Every structure is written in C-alpha cells, then in structure tokens.
Amino acid sequence: MLRRLSDGTPVVSYEVRPGLPAVSVTRFEAGVRAPEKSSHAHDFVVLCFFEDGGGSVRTGGQPHLIAPGDVCVVTPGQVVSAHDHDSGDSGGGWLVFFPPEVLRTGAAGEWRSHPLLSRFVNGATETAQWLNVPEEGRYTWSQRFQSLERELKERRDGYRDAVLAHLTLLLVDTARLGENVVRDLQTKNEPLLAAVFAHIEDHYAEPLALTDIARAVGLTPGHVTTTVKNKTGRTVGEWIVQRRMAAARRLLADTVIPIEEVARHTGFTDPGYFTRIFRRNHGTTPLNWRRSGNA
C-alpha cells in the first residue's frame, strides 16, 4: 500500500535489494524533456548534480531554476515536483538515492556536523538545499558519479566498500561546497539560523548556552530551540558540541598541545568533561584519537 504524508502527498519508498548496497545511481541526459510529475516525497535521500542548466525543480513549494553545476539535496519527507515544463528542457546530470540509515554507520567525519547536511543524519527540513559546484570542479564531480555507477554495475570484489567510499566522497564534497555556513544560510533565506550559527562560531571557545544565543538574536530560548530543531534536526546544544568537536579534532591534528589545552581552547573548563564528550561523539578518547592518526 502506498504511504502518504498527512496532506495526501504520496511517498515513494526505497526498494532494498537483498545482498546489494542500499545505494542507487542514475544518469539523466540533457535536452530530454522530463514527463510531468505530480508532487511526491521519498523515504530516502536524493543527491542531484546538474552538469547543464535548464528547466526547474520545485521542492517544498519553492521553485529553483537549474544552473550548470547545481547540486540539490532532497531529504526524506520533502515534497518535490521533478520538472516544471514552463522553464524548458532539463539539463543533464546525475542522481544518487540512498536511505539515511546508510550514513549512520562508520567512523565519524566532519561533514556530519555541517548545518546544511545535518538532515542527512537527523531528519528533514521543509525545502531542499541547493549548492553550486564551481566550473573548475565539475569534471571531478562527474567522475565521482561515474565511478560510483561503475562499481555498482561491475560488482567486483570489495565493491560494497567502494560504493560507500564513493558516496562518502560525494557527501564530503557537498559539505565543502557550503563551508561558509552563515553565508549559505543567508542565501537560503534562513536569517535566524544564520544568526544562531554566527554566534556559535564567534563564541564556541567560551562558556556558551542557549540563553546566551537567544539573547544575542533577540528571541526567547523556546523560539530559538523550536526553530533550530525543526530546521536542522538537532538542538542548539548539540550544535555547540559539534562545533567544539570540530575545533578539537583540528587542534588534535595540527598541534601537540596537551589535552587540557585542547579542552580550554574549545570551550571546556573541565578536561575530564571534555574527554567524556569527545568519547561519546567519537568512541575513543582525545589522546587515543591523536595517537591512532584519526585526526
């Protein structure tokens, strides 16, 4: 039976094939007019890369005119209309489909803590996220998709690991497209989120709480909490921790300062508490992380 959202929008389910990785890839050609499709949602993540411009996509009720190099991330539950005929023929590119559970396995990586990608792990927001690959990087992006497609088709020894590796590289590349978090959130018409993350960025190395951020943006803690949780799938406190963990990993990688100093530089007054939080997020202590070369 076809599942539907509360408003009646049909939800397309990912078809898991026994024994195969839960990742699918497909190529779509430029100049081919897509069939008219009614609004629908997925129970899986869709990562789109448009090599060419043309056409439009409507997600969450918001239209987007496709430009060369555009990247679109559509997460479970987001409503999408695949093609808007009024905007002409669609450009060529690639689609990758995968259930979000694929990203809940394996070692932690910095791309997981990026606000624009948090929905990959922690839920969805109302509209899809759009980024753009600079012209000089588009060939590499196309090669990533081609390599993923080849592994899925040929199924050589070790292909399951290779598939997840190629997917991870694509997601890391996607995260790096949005390295300026505040700018990207402003571009996506999210001024409150931009202000919240700007304050976290400026003050994560100091004592910082939800009340401090709410005061800085001029809203109640309850309003800030609800908005951030609904839009990103994580709480303000979780984002503060994630930013501090990213800074800690960088210090562990690039310096030899004592763990106590790493804690102090990332907003922790108690090194023991810092170690507990780090272990909770990474499965090991900061010292072991540094020694193992994970940093």
Results as ranks from 00 to 15, higher is better:
residue 1 M to C: 09
residue 2 L to G: 02
residue 4 R to K: 11
residue 8 G to W: 13
residue 14 Y to D: 04
residue 14 Y to M: 05
residue 16 V to M: 06
residue 16 V to N: 07
residue 20 L to A: 14
residue 30 A to I: 01
residue 34 A to M: 12
residue 36 E to G: 09
residue 37 K to F: 09
residue 38 S to M: 10
residue 44 F to E: 01
residue 45 V to F: 02
residue 46 V to M: 04
residue 46 V to N: 07
residue 47 L to H: 06
residue 51 E to P: 00
residue 58 R to Y: 07
residue 61 G to F: 10
residue 63 P to S: 12
residue 72 C to Q: 05
residue 72 C to Y: 01
residue 75 T to R: 06
residue 75 T to Q: 06
residue 78 Q to W: 08
residue 78 Q to A: 07
residue 81 S to P: 00
residue 82 A to K: 13
residue 83 H to D: 15
residue 84 D to R: 10
residue 85 H to T: 09
residue 85 H to K: 15
residue 88 G to V: 09
residue 89 D to P: 01
residue 92 G to M: 12
residue 93 G to M: 02
residue 94 W to T: 03
residue 96 V to T: 12
residue 97 F to S: 14
residue 99 P to G: 09
residue 99 P to V: 05
residue 100 P to N: 02
residue 102 V to A: 03
residue 102 V to G: 00
residue 106 G to P: 03
residue 107 A to Q: 14
residue 107 A to H: 11
residue 108 A to L: 00
residue 108 A to G: 04
residue 109 G to F: 02
residue 112 R to F: 02
residue 114 H to S: 06
residue 119 R to K: 04
residue 121 V to G: 00
residue 121 V to I: 03
residue 126 E to W: 12
residue 126 E to G: 08
residue 126 E to I: 07
residue 126 E to V: 11
residue 127 T to Q: 13
residue 129 Q to F: 09
residue 130 W to C: 02
residue 133 V to Y: 01
residue 138 R to I: 01
residue 140 T to H: 09
residue 141 W to R: 01
residue 145 F to H: 03
residue 148 L to A: 05
residue 149 E to D: 13
residue 154 E to A: 15
residue 154 E to H: 15
residue 154 E to F: 15
residue 155 R to Q: 15
residue 156 R to G: 13
residue 156 R to F: 10
residue 157 D to T: 12
residue 159 Y to I: 05
residue 163 V to G: 12
residue 163 V to T: 12
residue 165 A to D: 11
residue 165 A to T: 11
residue 168 T to N: 13
residue 169 L to E: 13
residue 169 L to G: 06
residue 170 L to I: 03
residue 170 L to V: 02
residue 174 T to H: 03
residue 175 A to E: 05
residue 177 L to E: 01
residue 179 E to Y: 05
residue 181 V to Q: 11
residue 181 V to P: 01
residue 182 V to F: 07
residue 182 V to G: 08
residue 183 R to Y: 14
residue 183 R to P: 05
residue 184 D to A: 09
residue 185 L to S: 10
residue 186 Q to F: 13
residue 188 K to D: 15
residue 189 N to F: 11
residue 189 N to E: 04
residue 194 A to V: 13
residue 197 F to G: 05
residue 200 I to G: 03
residue 207 P to R: 03
residue 208 L to N: 05
residue 209 A to Y: 14
residue 210 L to Y: 06
residue 212 D to E: 05
residue 216 A to F: 12
residue 218 G to L: 08
residue 220 T to V: 02
residue 222 G to R: 13
residue 223 H to G: 00
residue 223 H to T: 07
residue 223 H to K: 04
residue 224 V to A: 12
residue 225 T to C: 04
residue 225 T to F: 07
residue 230 N to F: 04
residue 234 R to H: 07
residue 234 R to E: 02
residue 235 T to R: 05
residue 236 V to F: 03
residue 236 V to E: 03
residue 237 G to C: 06
residue 238 E to L: 05
residue 241 V to D: 10
residue 242 Q to K: 07
residue 244 R to Q: 15
residue 244 R to W: 05
residue 248 A to M: 12
residue 248 A to P: 11
residue 250 R to E: 14
residue 251 L to E: 07
residue 253 A to Y: 10
residue 268 F to N: 01
residue 269 T to Q: 11
residue 273 Y to L: 15
residue 273 Y to G: 09
residue 275 T to H: 08
residue 276 R to D: 14
residue 276 R to N: 13
residue 277 I to R: 14
residue 284 T to Y: 06
residue 286 P to E: 06
residue 286 P to Q: 09
residue 291 R to G: 09
residue 293 G to Q: 12
